[in-house]
């Protein structure tokens, strides 16, 4: 009786030691992020473009906000709207915290995407979405900065054309540092989780 009690105690303490060792190990090797951590691997947010109100803006105008940078174009009917609709749902799930977030939708089709076209487009998705356009060289420089790419596909008979483009969503913290990379196929909850962490006061791991 006493022996078995002792044995149980020993087993229990071993379990505690093992589990605390495991969790310590877990702590040091894992990150708090569920998305891909790009801290230190991508440059800070920097650009000079025209917003959907026709105003010249720079990355400094969005300091203090967590920025979600996404490249797309308005004549893209499937994946771009899906991505923006998903980002809208993510911001809804964040509740009031979402005021600290801006979706920066940068057009890779500046010829057709004037500020006015972009304005109606982003407004249809979320009040915290901003449309950005600029000269083709400014847009190209920004995509290159984040190792994103886009290609204008051959035109169709009616003069319209499609643009293939990178689908990543780059997450910058409120100081403009590149932090995370999400893809449209990542579950929304991962983005919700990580944005929650980035937006929580005093918590920017």
């Amino acid at each position: 009786m006493k022996l078995s009690h002792l044995a149980r105690l020993a087993a229990l303490s071993m379990l505690i030691v093992a589990s605390s060792w495991l969790s310590a190990c877990h702590q040091s090797e894992s990150t708090p992020w569920q998305l891909t951590d790009i801290s230190g691997h991508m440059p800070d947010l920097s650009f000079r473009l025209t917003d959907d109100q026709g105003k010249t803006v720079t990355a400094a105008d969005y300091r203090g906000k967590v920025a979600l940078l996404y490249f797309g174009y308005t004549h893209c009917p499937d994946v771009c709207p899906l991505t923006l609709a998903q980002l809208h749902v993510v911001l809804q799930k964040l509740g009031p915290l979402a005021d600290g977030v801006r979706i920066l939708f940068v057009s890779v089709d500046p010829t057709r995407d004037t500020p006015a076209v972009l304005h109606d487009y982003v407004a249809a998705f979320d009040p915290r979405a901003v449309g950005l356009t600029g000269s083709p060289s400014d847009i190209e420089a920004l995509t290159k900065r984040y190792r994103a790419a886009f290609t204008r596909e051959p035109g169709k008979a009616d003069g319209s054309y499609d643009v293939s483009h990178s689908s990543g969503i780059y997450v910058f913290d409120n100081t403009g540092k590149a932090r995370l990379l999400a893809t449209p196929t990542d579950p929304q909850d991962k983005l919700v989780h990580d944005l929650h962490l980035l937006l929580s006061p005093g918590h920017a791991p």
Partner: peptide
């Protein structure tokens, strides 16, 4: 749509889409 996770996305025209006997085809986002 051609969606590669983390890569490029674009779209292409499809000439035909077969729905197999007693099968289902979904036209859905992405």
């Amino acid at each position: 749509s051609d969606v590669e996770s983390g890569g490029m996305n674009g779209m292409h025209a499809v000439n035909q889409l077969a729905i197999s006997a007693t099968g289902k085809a979904m036209l859905a986002p992405a």
